[in-house]
Design a binder for these strands. Structure first.
Lengths: 212, 212
DNA sequence: GTCTATACTACGATAGAC
DNA sequence: GTCTATCGTAGTATAGAC
């Protein structure tokens, strides 16, 4: 399918070079067609860019959630269930950030993170927002915390530990003195993050029972 | 000075559009000169790109270290000193990641993180590497830990919590339901990260005394 | 739906005037 | 050092053939 191939290449090219830097001729040629099919299918370069954002939003969910995204929003687990679900979710998130598949579209997202356009809204609404809110729900359920802001700040520090594996990939690898993440590296990272989350949940719970 | 203006604009443009996407004509025009002065001063587009990388490496240190970078590598603090130095360093790092000044060059670095070229080596050698290694030294000193890998993995989870404030800026803001980081947001984030670091140091120290 | 042909603008590099 | 002029290449968009 031409449109699928166009989107695959577009994601890669827009990631590397941005909306302005990428060339529709190059994208079309790499997809085995000509530039004017982009005009036909997406109305032009910007249309393709937004379509690429939607395509990325869809791919973000692969391996992260089972079933429809909206189902995540309504669950109300017990503290123990929430703690397990958190560890499970973040473990899968680590795998995803280390997976080479992610490399193709993560720079696209970071660009939008720092300089948001309509494309970021689409990605946030499509998948990322639901996942982040789900994380907040799990954190709240695991700690019995009613202070919304504190929970959301905690969520930021939790995802930050994982996202860095992708957004600061070269630094992480230099720090570990390796050219690729190996099995034992990943295991060590996962264990450390799991431990950090456990400590954070304990602290948040304690703060809640004895505020200030 | 023409060269200074050229570098300022170049950093911004290369950040947003990458090496290929940015236009030397635009950069020169914004700096109040013409394209051929880039050829004259830097030998061409790539020369300007590398010069921009060096310029960024220099700016990264502002507000983070006093005195020369190399001085950081030799200190051997006590555990208490190290803990304080860690908290101080990370606090300043949070300020830097939230500072709008950082916005201009952070995407440049992330691009190089995910797709390293010679420019990343320059940035790493210039400042980032020294800071990261300094962090590892402080972590080791604070925990008395001799397991190098575990310390380095811990360092990754620590910087990750801070870097995310910049590399996932839009997500953090959406999560907090605000358009800008306000004073109380920053205070809450700093407190949370400080608490997380303390918990991590305690855990690392305990693990060391009673391995496995 | 997919292609060719064409129009127009912008790119980086370079040579040479001042 | 800084500029103008020019070359060859590559960019997006559009109209229209099939």
């Amino acid at each position: 399918m031409v449109q699928r191939r166009l989107l695959d290449i577009a994601v890669r090219e827009f990631s590397l070079k941005g909306l302005e830097g990428a060339s529709t001729r190059d994208i079309a040629a790499a997809a085995g067609t000509v530039m004017s099919s982009i005009t036909y299918h997406y109305g032009g370069k910007e249309g393709l860019y937004l379509a690429a954002a939607d395509y990325i939003a869809e791919q973000m969910g692969h391996g992260m959630v089972d079933g429809p995204v909206e189902a995540m929003d309504i669950a109300e687990p017990t503290p123990t269930e929430a703690r397990l679900a958190l560890q499970d979710l973040l473990g899968r998130f680590v795998d995803k950030m280390i997976d080479e598949q992610t490399a193709h579209w993560s720079l696209f997202i970071v660009r939008e993170q720092m300089n948001p356009t309509e494309a970021f809204d689409r990605i946030w609404r499509g998948m990322m927002g639901h996942m982040m809110e789900h994380l907040v729900v799990l954190l709240r359920a695991a700690t019995g915390r009613r202070d919304d802001k504190a929970t959301r700040v905690a969520a930021i520090t939790v995802v930050g530990q994982v996202i860095t594996l992708r957004s600061s990939r070269a630094s992480c690898l230099k720090l570990l003195g390796t050219a690729e993440f190996h099995e034992d590296d990943v295991a060590a990272i996962k264990a450390r993050i799991a431990s950090n989350i456990d400590a954070l949940l304990d602290t948040l719970t304690a703060e809640q029972q004895e505020p200030q």
